[in-house]
Design a protein around this nucleic acid. Structure first.
Lengths: 229, 229
DNA sequence: CGGCGCCTTGAACCAAGTCAAGCTCTGTGG
DNA sequence: CCACAGAGCTTGACTTGGTTCAAGGCGCCG
């Protein structure tokens, strides 16, 4: 068990730097530095909760390695995933006093936590830092709006858009999906069966190739882009 | 024409103060004050553009009176409304260098515009103001996420939620809807026909009453709330 | 190598969309 | 003041994209 964790940890650390490099190209240097100096690392193993809706929100999070899902479960049992976070992403920006979403690690993950009051104190003295916090929030708002608009489209278009988004965020044409079909379905407002069917359809049209069910190679990017425009 | 504008202007000014009172209960006093002193009013008549997607974003907006829709038009002609703004709401928070959405006045409207660089300069010197800008952004992010989650639900639930939201935002059980069925449809990811059908259904179940098609009285709030939980 | 969870595929069903016709409200001009 | 025109709203009949339910298949881990 300990050994397994260590192996996962190492694997994630390797992924970390490529991920972080991509996500923070000196653009939010102050924010990353502030989080690294004022924050502390915490390790979350696969499928464990990071925080739950309605709990008091004390920290701001930056994912260092792994992957995270943010979701709500509605009365009738449906689960709606509002976002996936990848290394370099800052999350829980939407919290007020309390968390409005729950989050879980999808795979073993390392996150940097910083107390909200600590970062706000720093930001009050450093306009550059405050600016970057603000920018993180507007970025997240844009992402949320984009996603919202996506939910009005056909299943095939949603998947195409999801794959392109993942490719862009991991900076690679061969996308590794850490999450299950059910996760993707709950994110795109579709069932896991529809996700399967559409991936099969995209593969038979030559747009993608599926060596394994978690590994997706974007064969014909133009074909995918045509679907999302 | 001029007379018509004046009449509309007066009508809106009356609505203004009730609306603003509700929306800004001293919570973002600094922000409102800053916008009032550093900004300037602009009048938009019904169905005119406030700004268009991809144009350079120079201002931050606060709606004083009227109603605004923010939307995107996608390739195939569908229009997707991402938000409605009511008096007191601050909008265009999601803009980076350029607008990512277009906005139009739904009815004759009065907005307060302030240059982004001006408000950022003020905010760099006033942590309280910066804090309020930040809060506006996280609020908008929460709203956007809520809306996103709504789009995965049944038509009847979406309408119920929309009516409750409107009731809450206008602080009244008798909701006046400034927007058309088509607007509501584009906001909720439904057709205008479905909006009509569901409103009829809600009326015959006794949840609401429709004296006119723009005026909706919430008869049985519990019944509506039961649908949205 | 065997079992379990996840993924895929098929068939029947259903919520919402589309198309079309009629209705209502509002504004305009006689 | 009323008749009329046009836009927007409502309602009905039919279609369809996606879900549901169910049966296999695959791969991963012990």
């Amino acid at each position: 068990m300990l050994q397994e964790l260590n192996i996962a940890s190492r694997a994630n650390r390797v992924r970390r730097y490529s991920g972080m490099e991509h996500a923070s190209p000196a653009k939010n240097r102050e924010l990353v530095t502030a989080m690294e100096t004022a924050g502390s690392h915490r390790w979350f193993s696969r499928d464990t909760e990071i925080y739950a809706e309605k709990e008091r929100a004390e920290y701001l999070y930056m994912l260092v390695s792994g992957a995270v899902r943010a979701y709500k479960v509605v009365m009738d049992g449906r689960r709606l995933i509002s976002a996936f976070y990848m290394p370099g992403d800052i999350f829980d920006l939407e919290a007020s006093k309390n968390h409005v979403l729950s989050t879980e690690a999808i795979v073993n993950s390392d996150a940097l936590l910083v107390r909200r009051d600590a970062i706000m104190t720093l930001a009050a003295r450093d306009p550059e830092l405050m600016q970057q916090l603000w920018t993180s929030c507007t970025q997240e708002l844009r992402r949320s709006q984009e996603h919202m608009l996506l939910l009005n489209r056909y299943a095939e278009e949603r998947i195409a858009s999801f794959l392109l988004e993942m490719s862009r965020r991991t900076n690679s044409t061969s996308v590794h999906l850490p999450m299950s079909r059910q996760d993707i379905g709950d994110y795109l407002g579709l069932t896991s069966e529809t996700i399967s069917r559409m991936l099969t359809k995209l593969e038979s049209s030559g747009a993608i190739h599926l060596p394994t069910c978690k590994q997706i190679a974007l064969r014909n990017r133009a074909k995918l882009e045509q679907l999302v425009i």
